[in-house]
Write a protein that binds this DNA or RNA. Structure first.
Lengths: 329, 329
DNA sequence: CTGAAAGCGCTTACAG
DNA sequence: CTGAAAGCGCTTACAG
């Protein structure tokens, strides 16, 4: 493995000069520059990145923490972030927490280790109290998730409004008995969606029945289970707002299995507008999040923070959300 | 940011001793060990990873090259690899080529830069000729994709057999006019699936019509387009083997739109057994790949190669593939 | 335009 | 059991 010293020896120049041509400095004699470039070619020399990082105190890498990459929402978000990073010569280090708070903290250690220049939290398993100590080691921002108490930049969508939009739509379709099936309320984002549900119900003077509120619901199988519970009710809801398209797909799948018609017997609204939303039958009415824009904005903000390195004014940015109507309502 | 020197000063010991306790060396006086640990706590010290990497000539990171993370096949593969890596203290650096050969080569440069200890190619846009020079800078293996000429370890599935299984199944269902819609033949994996198709057809003495062979087909919209072409044919096929579940889903979606019944008017077989295969209606008969096992095996093999660092005997490993029967056939 | 020297933060023989 | 010294491969003032 060739080093800068090898190039220096081969060309009879100093490592300093070689370094200058590597980094495209001006004030290097043209003929020497060419000589160095030729030698680098011949020895297929590439600068050692650990040495550059150690010396430069910069990694050009940002860590992105998500809960799990197999969730299409995250894979699309990461895809957009990665593109934005590459455009400016940054790398993205993918870290999944698998919903484990401890693991999330371990990933934040990357900042202390100087293995990354900054961290984007797209999933949030800890509270601001746990996160805060890390912020003094480098920029930390949130994307998608947020925390009311946190004092860091956050790029997100108005989840309460999303929940409100979904439920208002169901109410407009004439429903009064509406169920909710979402994640865990400890997470702000989930909690807010439920608040949006309550807001729409209150606005229409409709009562909220405890039995219609399902929490800790995430995937397809959860959706199936929720439907089974609904099916067993004396007076079941006629509509359900699910906190994810996969949950919605599970409800629909199971409903059809039991000969319930969608949307006639049960109407369903999902969340995210994932590809599967238009593949299942009927298509899922859903709340679309501007995933791509959100990812790009978050990565750009992060890179700006790193590049300017000044104390960035703490800011929140909220992106619009809208309803996509399909056959399930 | 505390360094090893800070800890040494604070405790009145040498950096050497501090390093010893960081690395859990034996032969450190117990009381001193505790003193150092306390100081590390207080200064919230974490070793600088660039320094460790530079000094140790090891990164504990492996690069995984895929074409695009939003492809569920890859997100599941990466998920499995990531878990296997974490289990042994390795990190996974995700690199997407977006099907661009040049970008793939740039990712291979990570090996020269010593930013990773090895590379797993789960997507392959270059030929062995281009890849080969990189192999002298560290272990490079293939997972999922393969190349007949390449002399590197490869963990993969027998794609020809997969294609054969799919088409034989259609033939057993009584079909004789069978179309194929897959990727680009420049890729060995794709080419082999088509060979499997030909093999099954030949075995049943069925002719292969050129008009029934569609290549360069990848996503949902490609599937829609393929169906539209089929619909316009004088004598259309009665079945189609698609090189991916998304393509299959596109065909089915468009078929239903035009009132063709699936499988009565057109039977469809997909590939990968992705979640969506059981969500669409009818469910997609598909070829299941042991994605998880493949990912874990590849990562383990890579870590073995890195850890033993000896010249690994060049090996190929082929994993089983099987048919999952659903409503689309 | 060019080079010698110092140093980024660590670890590992080596000597005690 | 412990420490001084060298060195991993680079870049950046500094002096010329």
């Amino acid at each position: 493995m060739a080093t800068i010293k090898d190039i220096a020896e081969k060309t009879g120049l100093s490592p300093t000069t070689v370094s200058r041509v590597i980094n495209n400095h001006p004030y290097v004699d043209q003929s020497k520059r060419i000589k160095v470039q030729k030698a680098m070619q011949e020895l297929s020399y590439v600068p050692n990145s650990s040495a550059q990082r150690l010396r430069g105190q910069k990694t050009n890498t940002v860590a992105v923490i998500i809960s799990r990459i197999i969730n299409p929402f995250f894979s699309h978000l990461v895809d957009a972030m990665g593109e934005a990073a590459t455009d400016r010569g940054y790398q993205l280090l993918l870290c999944d927490s698998r919903l484990d708070a401890q693991r999330e903290l371990e990933h934040l250690e990357l900042l202390k280790k100087k293995q990354v220049d900054g961290v984007i939290l797209a999933s949030l398993q800890n509270t601001w109290k746990e996160i805060e100590p890390y912020t003094k080691f480098g920029p930390v921002i949130t994307c998608n998730e947020y925390d009311k108490e946190a004092e860091m930049p956050m790029i997100s969508c108005d989840q309460q409004y999303g929940g409100y939009l979904a439920v208002r739509h169901l109410i407009e379709q004439g429903h009064t008995r509406i169920a909710y099936a979402g994640g865990v309320n400890r997470i702000q984002l989930t909690y807010d969606r439920l608040q949006g549900y309550r807001q729409a119900m209150a606005e229409a003077s409709l009562p909220v029945e405890d039995a219609f509120i399902f929490t800790g619901i995430y995937g397809l199988s959860d959706g199936i289970q929720v439907f089974d519970e609904i099916r067993g009710m004396e007076e079941p809801p006629t509509a359900i707002f699910a906190g994810g398209d996969e949950v919605a797909a599970g409800v629909i799948k199971q409903a059809k299995l039991h000969q319930w018609r969608v949307p006639e017997d049960i109407a369903v609204v999902g969340f995210d507008n994932q590809p599967l939303a238009e593949l299942v039958e009927p298509g899922i009415t859903t709340i679309e999040q501007p995933t791509k824009v959100m990812g790009i904005r978050a990565m750009q903000l992060m890179m700006d923070m790193i590049d300017h390195a000044g104390p960035v004014t703490y800011q929140k940015e909220t992106l619009p959300l809208h309803l996509v109507k399909r056959g399930s309502t």
